[in-house]
């Protein structure tokens, strides 16, 4: 697959799109772990929801 004289524009576009999508996925995954860890800490400290459901139910 030859990209011709403007290859740098094509490659940069795809590389940037890949990087942004990976950052989004990473940010959402890290945020999920952080929120679950905070919920576990609070439950370990005796603070629970009125329903009694804990982080293990998620």
């Amino acid at each position: 697959m030859a990209l011709g004289p403007h290859a740098v524009f094509v490659v940069t576009s795809y590389a940037l799109a890949t990087a942004v999508v990976l950052v989004l996925i990473g940010w959402i995954a890290v945020d999920y772990r952080r929120q679950k860890a905070r919920l576990r800490e609070l439950e370990a400290g005796g603070v629970t929801r009125r329903s009694g459901r804990g982080v293990a139910d998620i």
């Binding site: 999920y32 929120q35 603070v47 929801r49």
Partner: peptide
């Protein structure tokens, strides 16, 4: 599809964040 997937995952995180906040206020 990428948007739907990321959006549902981000909504899940936001619900958890609000639960954390309400438990912190309770504490």
């Amino acid at each position: 599809l990428l948007f739907v997937t990321l959006h549902l995952a981000a909504m899940r995180n936001e619900i958890l964040r609000r639960r954390v906040r309400s438990l912190q206020m309770m504490q």
